[in-house]
Write a protein that binds this DNA or RNA. Structure first.
Lengths: 258, 258
DNA sequence: TGTCACAAAATTGTCAACAATCTGCAAAAA
DNA sequence: TTTTTGCAGATTGTTGACAATTTTGTGACA
């Protein structure tokens, strides 16, 4: 069946690094089509903020930049559209989606229901190893609060919730949850949690862990639900404050700091 | 800005039907691209069972059948893949997805949490007009039970849940709920509810309406949650029975009837 | 000065051709 | 007989070209 394998069993040390690199590229191209690679790269760029919400994504520009033709780009656009990260207007182009506050609120409500399910489930199934892992995340977050490191706190917070959802063992739930988180990242007014709110959020995390560890599904579910809803309220309040003091500009920030 | 509109304001009666048809087609093409039309048609065909789960969808065949080139077909495939209705294997093609029982169970669990949210919400917000509409659906379902019309019951059941979700007023929730229902339609062992289970399901529907109308969010949420979980149990039991008696064949069915 | 019409440029929508890969089958080898 | 090898056809992956549409720029004209 198989004609001789392309990959040599052993690598000449001299070219090891280059060959290992191209090997990885080859392996990637053998499992993923260009479309998928393009899709992942555009998604990464969007989530990293390289393309701000509202930005128009031009097929030819992206095609040239990534060294492929427009076909894969267009197919990737269709995937990103279905995933809710971009919006397509016929004959006008695709744009990075801008999640309005209404939709962000809806997502929070939905997330709350999903996280409640997660809490209930974990109260029944959490292993000691899992408990240990979550506890280390909670501890790390509290350290971040003490040192005022909002960026680290933000990342740990994402990881904390993602791991909990994953541990619940429902793959469909996990997949949809992650999609929602990605969309929420496009809610530009979200940004990082403001510093003075971190202690409250961190305290809720510890309480969640306690509720789950207690083995009481209803308590754990409620703790998760309440936490997400509190987070929603904080986000709305944040948004309102930003709107009243106008869009974020350097001048504005300096005025505020002074 | 606008050059003269293509569409004549009044139609010559003689060719009205033909022209009306092509007018509709033209209007459709002005808002939707071929890709979207193709996507919708394939999706409809899949959900209608014209392409059974596992069926391979060949690009060239579909392109010729629908009178377009392969480009729009491929783009539609990427959308359907992201939506979970087909699965793509590199260099091998796309296949109509076959939802395994595990995933169906996961979807039921997730749906239960979402429907619980719906129940809680509606207990607080249901208008009299909405109550009336839902009640008419429940009544119609009970009539279908009496006359043993499983097909009508099935459709009304879908409508019942879809309307409830829609009435909850969370568009994101509605969109994801509908996606899940579509995927569930690909769980081939689901099929229609077996006749003798309809009365139970119908009773639960009436109870849901009552709980929502009572205005008690927790009771309404629990009624919805329980109903979906019961539905899940019935589906699993159904699947087990089918598996033990082997795949559905004419011979098998006749043996069972005899 | 503003705005309308109209041409030019840029961009998207669609298509057909070419390249790469897989599948099935028959012939050759063990 | 069983396994392997080597085509030939079919199918997918990718590309570049052309058509249709929108956007932009420009100048005439009120």
């Amino acid at each position: 069946m198989a004609t001789a394998e392309v990959l040599p069993p052993v690598l000449p040390p001299a070219v090891a690094s280059i060959t290992a690199d191209s090997l990885a590229t080859i392996a990637l191209l053998q499992t993923s089509s260009l479309t998928v690679l393009v899709q992942q790269d555009i998604e990464r760029a969007i989530l990293a903020g390289e393309y701000a919400p509202g930005t128009k994504l031009v097929e030819t520009a992206l095609a040239e930049k990534m060294g492929v033709s427009r076909g894969p780009i267009r197919e990737a656009f269709r995937m990103l559209d279905e995933a809710g990260l971009v919006r397509t207007e016929k004959n006008r182009g695709v744009f990075v989606r801008d999640i309005p506050i209404d939709e962000a609120i809806e997502i929070f409500d939905l997330r709350a229901a999903m996280d409640e399910l997660v809490g209930r489930q974990l109260a029944k199934s959490l292993t000691t190893a899992q408990h240990k892992e979550i506890k280390s995340l909670v501890d790390a977050m509290e350290r971040a609060v003490k040192s005022g490191d909002t960026r680290t706190y933000h990342l740990l917070n994402l990881k904390f919730h993602d791991r909990l959802v994953e541990m619940a063992g429902n793959r469909k739930l996990t997949a949809i949850y992650r999609k929602l988180i990605k969309e929420l990242a496009l809610f530009r007014r979200l940004n990082l949690a403001d510093g003075w709110l971190m202690p409250i959020s961190a305290g809720e995390h510890r309480q969640i862990l306690k509720a789950i560890a207690s083995g009481d599904p209803e308590a754990a579910g409620r703790a998760m639900y309440d936490h997400v809803m509190e987070s929603k309220e904080r986000t709305i309040a944040n948004d309102l404050r930003r709107q009243t003091r106008g869009p974020e500009t350097v001048a504005n920030r300096e005025k505020r700091v002074a």
